Amino acid sequence: MNAYRNLAKLILSSCLLILLSFFLVACSPNPSKDIYRGAQFLFDTEVFIEAHGPGAQEAGLKAMGKMTTLDQACNIYSLDSELTALNQAAGEKPVPLSDDTFFLIQRSLEAAKLTKGIFDPTIGPLVQLWQKAKSLETLPTSEEIRKVLILVDYKKVILNPDLKTAFLPTTGMSIDLGGIAKGYAVEQAINSLNQAGISSAMVIAGGNIGTINTKPDGTPWRVGIKDPQQPDCIIGYLEPSNQVVDTSGNYERYFTQEGKKYGHVLNPRTGRPTNGFASCTILTDSPTMADALSTTLLILGTEGLTLINDLPNTQALLIDSDGLQFMSDGLKDLLNK
């Protein structure tokens, strides 16, 4: 499986680099050190950075390097990643982590507390159960789900800030950061670019899109929101400045069993996929929290808008499986159509 996975990454990365090279040659006949555009395949998706300003080339490469390091550390499918080492040591011993991995897990637990466990990074055993069921073209039994749910509890994770260690106290527990790692990586890249004095940038990791200021010409960055029922169509645009737009959806990643679609977002309360809402878009200041919140609202649905309305500088758009739209209090004035 890993061999096919690595081959797919290599092929897609090569295609991205070829397209990027063509774009740079076509659009920038005199490449400047003040412009950087780079793409890689990380976190199982396309990652792209565009940066403008003095030293943008060096700053962009450094930011991309940070994202690459995070991907390597948090890849649960890699035998030598930090996250794999942590999961393998569950029930046995604490595991020392790099600063970034430790802080990412710390942020994931903060998100879990904020959402009262609807976002739960210890959902790993449940993810594995449904992945196995998908590969066998079947569905987990209620008893299998019940046994796995016992292992899902973010409150059990033990962090030691002084030693930078993490411990999963129960054998079989595992952390899966797929619902927050892309956002954290975008946030770290944005921070790195800001520290380098970059005046204009956009960083993309899948559905998580962070920005610095506006485009170089002063016009706003525009992020389109797809229509889940017609993915080639845009229902509107947001114009983030020093903000992030994050969209999670069930309409692109799912499997069908016995004539029913099952999305990839799992509800840690029920142990089953959530299918009532097709997509959720979050507009906020933190790419990390945007990633976790978009997953949370796909599970909670309109109930989650109460949470969003209580958070500063945060807006949300939910689209259900029938195409109906539900917005937080302040989004209507920000959504351009």
Rank of each mutant, 00 (worst) to 15 (best):
A3Y: 15
A3S: 08
Y4N: 12
R5V: 13
N6C: 02
L7R: 15
K9E: 08
I11V: 15
I11H: 13
S13T: 13
L17W: 05
L20V: 11
F22E: 11
F22A: 14
F23Q: 10
F23C: 10
A26T: 12
P31H: 03
S32P: 00
K33Y: 04
R37E: 07
A39K: 09
F41T: 14
H52G: 02
E58S: 10
G60F: 06
K62H: 15
G65F: 03
T68V: 03
T69C: 01
L70C: 07
D71A: 14
Q72L: 10
Q72S: 09
A73Y: 07
Y77V: 14
S81A: 10
E82T: 12
A85I: 00
N87E: 05
A90I: 00
D99R: 03
L104K: 05
R107E: 10
L109S: 04
E110G: 00
A111Q: 04
K116R: 11
G117V: 09
F119W: 11
T122N: 03
Q128R: 13
Q128M: 06
L129F: 13
A133T: 14
K134H: 15
L139K: 13
L139Q: 14
L139M: 12
I145R: 08
K147F: 09
V148A: 05
L149I: 06
D153R: 01
V157S: 04
L159Q: 10
K164H: 12
K164E: 07
K164A: 07
T165W: 05
L168R: 07
G172C: 03
D176T: 06
L177N: 13
G179E: 02
E187Y: 01
E187G: 07
S192V: 05
L193G: 00
Q195N: 07
I198A: 01
I198K: 00
S199G: 09
S200P: 02
G206T: 06
G207Q: 05
N208I: 09
T211I: 03
P216N: 12
D217E: 15
T219L: 02
W221N: 01
R222Q: 08
I225A: 02
Q229I: 14
D232P: 02
C233L: 12
C233E: 14
I234L: 11
I234T: 15
Y237L: 10
E239V: 03
S241M: 05
Q243R: 06
V245D: 12
T247S: 03
S248P: 04
G249V: 15
G249N: 15
G249W: 13
Y251A: 05
Y254V: 07
E258V: 03
K260A: 02
Y262V: 05
Y262G: 04
V265E: 04
L266T: 01
R272A: 12
P273G: 13
N275R: 13
F277T: 09
A278I: 08
T281S: 15
I282N: 05
I282D: 06
L283Y: 08
D285N: 12
T288L: 02
M289G: 01
S294H: 05
T295K: 00
T295L: 00
T302Y: 14
L305H: 15
T306S: 09
I308V: 14
N309F: 09
N313P: 03
T314V: 01
I319C: 01
I319P: 01
I319L: 00
I319Q: 01
I319T: 11
G323R: 15
L324H: 15
Q325V: 11
G330M: 05
K332V: 11
K337Q: 08
K337A: 07
